[in-house]
Structures are given as C-alpha cells and as structure tokens.
Simulated scan of single mutants.
Amino acid sequence: MSVHPAPYSVVITTFDKRFDAHLVPLLAQIKSQRPNLEVIAVINGPAKADFDEVYRENILSYLARFPKVFPTMFPSFQSLAKLWNRGALTSSHERILILNDDLDLRAENGICFFDCLETAMSAQQGTFKINGSFSHFILDKRELIEVGFFDERLLGLGEEDGDFYWRFYKKYKKEIPSVEIALIDNIQSDLADEGYTKGIRTASKFNREFIQQEKYKTALLGGYRGMFDKRVNQILEDEKQYPYETFYLENKKKI
C-alpha cells in the first residue's frame, strides 16, 4: 500500500511526433493508476512549420477522455525551459511530477509506479530527481521560485536541467538529491522536431553554446561542476522571471 503525500500534480511535455507512440500510452497508464490525479499536458508547437490541425484535434479529443487533464498549447515552438515553467505555474499544487512523454510506468504484483513514488515523496521533501534523471523528477514550486525559474534564454532543448542544478547548489549549498524508484522506464526516444539545429541527440546546439560561451566560464580556481563537463563560474546574471508568482501563492486564498 502506498503512503499518501500531500496533493501533487503531473506535468507532461509533448509534441506532435510523439503522440501515438508515447503520449497515448503514457497518459493511459497514469490514469489507470491514479484516475483523479491532476495532469497538465504542455503541448509544444513546431519550430518551422504550421501547427498540424489534425494533431490539434486528435490530442484535444484524447485528453478530453480523462478527468482532470488540462492542456496548455503553443502554436509555435517554445523552449523546454518555458514548457517546464508554464507547467509548474499552471499546476494547482506546490509539488509537481514533471515527465518527459517517452516513459513507461508499470504495475506489477499489485504495486504500481505511483505507489512507489508516493512512498518516496513522503520520505523525501523538496525537489528530487528520479533514478538520477531529469526525464522524470519532482519539483517543489517554492524551491523553483527561490532558485529562479528554468532559464528561458535557453531557446531550444537541453542544458536547462544542468543550469537549474548548478543554481540550486549555489542557492542551498547542496545538490538536488536522487531517489531510486521502481516501475518506471525511460524509453529515450530520438523523435524530435525537425526545425531546430541539433547538437547532441535531440538537444539544441543553441542551448549548449549559450551555456558554454555566454552564461558560464570554466573556473581556473573554485567554481562548481554540477552536471557540466568542468567546474564553472556563472558570468551572465539571471533576470527574475515570473516575479509576481510569490505574491499569487501568498494571496490567492484572499480572492
């Protein structure tokens, strides 16, 4: 039996090429295991094409089959950093399970993935990676605000997790923990939008160059490595993103 933590939401980021192969089975798994869990589906648009109207109709029809699934849709391509931020902002709860769409959530011998997750969430407070990966992680909204939202200057995909990890350590002088949780598999699909320039696998060349050439500099002394290749210091300061979110969280009950 699972231990029930405080309420939480699920955010899934997705796009047209992964609808049938990945999103359809993933959402079915989530809703078979936790039918009333709030799910925010953040749907990205194409980088250099018109939004597929058939896909728009199909995904909205599919999401409408399930209770408590709320779509956020972008007509044109947006950064993964923005998708994660908007998903977190949309979620009703302060803890959020953020998922890539290419995952398999299993159930075996009467135990499902969410049983394992909720036991872990009751024992581990705050933000944590699952099985060492940002393909699936728990995000604490208060920590997101304190550390600073995912950097939306990373206009494509990639490096947003390493940048947040680095800044989390700078803020709290500790690393984001990782918790081992069973019954979840990362398929690691190579299906990607064709309209942006790739670097490593599906990651954006732009993002890697921004991190390595503009935001951080290799540290000759001191610095911190985190998820990066070398120890670095931050040389480009962060702007405050979504500055009124704290005010909203503190005052929303007064409305």
Score class of each variant (00 low, 15 high):
236 L>C: 06
68 K>L: 06
31 K>N: 06
115 D>C: 13
168 F>K: 05
209 E>G: 04
176 I>W: 02
186 N>D: 13
32 S>L: 09
134 F>E: 04
53 E>W: 01
11 V>N: 02
182 A>P: 02
148 G>R: 00
139 L>Y: 07
17 K>H: 12
92 S>C: 01
162 G>L: 04
41 A>N: 09
186 N>E: 15
117 L>R: 10
44 N>L: 04
173 K>Q: 10
167 R>L: 12
229 D>G: 06
165 Y>R: 00
108 E>C: 07
175 E>R: 15
138 I>P: 10
204 S>I: 03
227 M>Q: 12
136 H>E: 10
219 A>Y: 04
142 R>H: 08
183 L>A: 09
64 A>L: 13
244 Y>Q: 09
252 K>G: 08
20 D>F: 13
99 L>Q: 07
193 D>M: 01
205 K>N: 05
138 I>V: 03
150 F>S: 00
254 K>T: 10
192 A>I: 07
100 N>F: 05
144 L>G: 04
194 E>T: 06
8 Y>K: 02
204 S>M: 08
37 L>G: 06
52 D>F: 10
199 G>A: 00
38 E>F: 06
117 L>G: 00
129 K>W: 09
211 I>Q: 03
153 R>S: 07
220 L>I: 11
223 G>L: 09
50 D>V: 12
165 Y>W: 07
194 E>A: 07
82 K>Y: 04
29 Q>C: 14
72 T>N: 14
116 C>R: 05
234 Q>G: 08
76 S>N: 15
22 H>D: 02
107 A>Q: 13
161 D>F: 09
247 F>I: 14
156 G>R: 08
226 G>V: 03
128 F>L: 15
51 F>C: 05
36 N>I: 13
45 G>S: 10
205 K>M: 12
27 L>V: 04
193 D>C: 11
214 E>T: 11
131 N>Q: 15
230 K>C: 01
250 E>W: 01
31 K>C: 06
66 F>H: 04
106 R>P: 12
208 R>T: 02
63 L>I: 07
112 C>F: 07
51 F>N: 08
97 L>R: 00
56 R>N: 01
54 V>S: 11
116 C>F: 00
214 E>R: 05
179 V>G: 03
76 S>D: 10
21 A>L: 09
176 I>H: 07
180 E>Q: 13
4 H>E: 15
112 C>R: 10
9 S>A: 14
120 A>S: 13
141 K>T: 08
228 F>W: 00
237 E>Q: 14
5 P>F: 08
215 K>R: 13
141 K>M: 08
136 H>W: 12
224 Y>W: 12
131 N>W: 15
82 K>I: 02
136 H>I: 08
93 H>T: 05
174 K>Q: 11
177 P>K: 12
208 R>G: 05
115 D>W: 11
29 Q>W: 10
60 L>R: 15
212 Q>F: 14
232 V>G: 01
168 F>P: 01
202 T>A: 14
254 K>W: 11
112 C>M: 09
68 K>D: 09
214 E>A: 11
105 L>G: 14
98 I>R: 03
197 T>F: 05
17 K>A: 10
122 S>N: 04
117 L>K: 01
209 E>D: 08
19 F>L: 11
75 P>T: 09
74 F>M: 03
26 L>S: 03
127 T>Q: 00
24 V>L: 01
249 L>M: 09
181 I>F: 15
81 A>C: 08
